[in-house]
């Protein structure tokens, strides 16, 4: 057999080279913008050494308080995520091209964009003005920001479904809502659950950050310990956060498996 290879194409080669050059230029530009300076890690090695020393002597003195705040962090993440799912289901459906006409879809998408564009830290500052310091402000911040994220992810899942089962339901004389409940939701449910679990895990991490601005959760202690050079306490808190996130990952993997 005589096999024919496609002829070498200069056009293709030039495109590839051009793309690589453009990418390298972009990265070089961003290097300056981000003030990357690896040498600082060496010249300031003393600071890192001090930090590492503290880490090796964990300070368990306040561990009960830390565990309590970890629990608060989880509670914030849970409510923030569940409220976000409740908001994201209708918004995600309304933002999907195969469900809603453009004059519904576009406003829904822009609203989701706006919710997503503003970080939960910023929302936390707003809500602290509205409801005062504490976990409630943090929970509302997580809820609003996560609604934006889950709404977009949910709508993308809806847009990737197989339309044929939906048509099968439509052909029985069912109305639009019934088409969604019987034809769309069963198809998207595993992915929706998967995304919601992942966002719950992310929200546990975010909840530990919003605490830094005073919106409740473990972040408060984390911030305090770093600022007071109590690196032993920082090590304990970070260890607790890591254990929590790993535990959530293990549990959510099981839940995901059960829902497939």
């Amino acid at each position: 057999m005589n096999h024919q290879l496609p002829p070498f194409s200069w056009t293709n080669a030039l495109w590839h080279a051009g793309f690589l050059l453009a990418f390298a230029a972009l990265m070089a530009w961003a290097w300056h913008g981000a003030r990357l300076d690896p040498l600082l890690l060496l010249t300031n090695a003393g600071n890192s050494y001090e930090f590492a020393q503290g880490f090796l002597k964990p300070n368990f003195h306040d561990w009960r308080a830390y565990v309590d705040e970890i629990a608060v962090t989880l509670h914030m993440a849970l409510w923030g995520t569940v409220l976000a799912v409740v908001g994201a289901v209708p918004l995600g459906l309304l933002a999907a091209a195969n469900i809603a006409p453009w004059w519904v879809r576009q406003p829904a998408r822009r609203l989701l964009d706006a919710l997503r564009a503003i970080n939960e830290m910023v929302f936390a500052l707003f809500f602290m003005v509205a409801v005062g310091l504490g976990p409630f402000a943090g929970t509302l911040a997580l809820f609003v920001h996560t609604t934006g994220i889950l709404g977009k992810l949910f709508s993308e899942v809806v847009e990737s479904i197989d339309q044929r089962p939906v048509e099968g339901i439509r052909a029985t004389g069912a109305n639009r809502l019934e088409e969604i409940v019987y034809g769309v939701i069963p198809q998207v449910l595993p992915m929706w659950i998967s995304y919601a679990l992942y966002r719950f895990e992310s929200n546990v991490r975010s909840a530990s950050v919003v605490g830094m601005v005073g919106a409740g959760g473990i972040g408060y202690f984390l911030n305090e310990s770093v600022r007071s050079y109590d690196y032993g306490a920082t090590a304990v808190i970070m260890g607790l956060i890591v254990i929590t996130v790993v535990a959530i990952d293990v549990v959510s993997a099981q839940v995901r498996k059960a829902t497939l």
């Binding site: 044929r164 048509e167 029985t172 198809q187």
Partner: peptide, 19 residues
């Protein structure tokens, strides 16, 4: 939909909801 209610349709790819 009143007409469709009285008309059953079956398809080449069956169009059932698999899950």
């Amino acid at each position: 939909r009143r007409v469709r209610a009285q008309v059953g349709m079956i398809f080449q790819q069956f169009n059932l909801v698999g899950r």
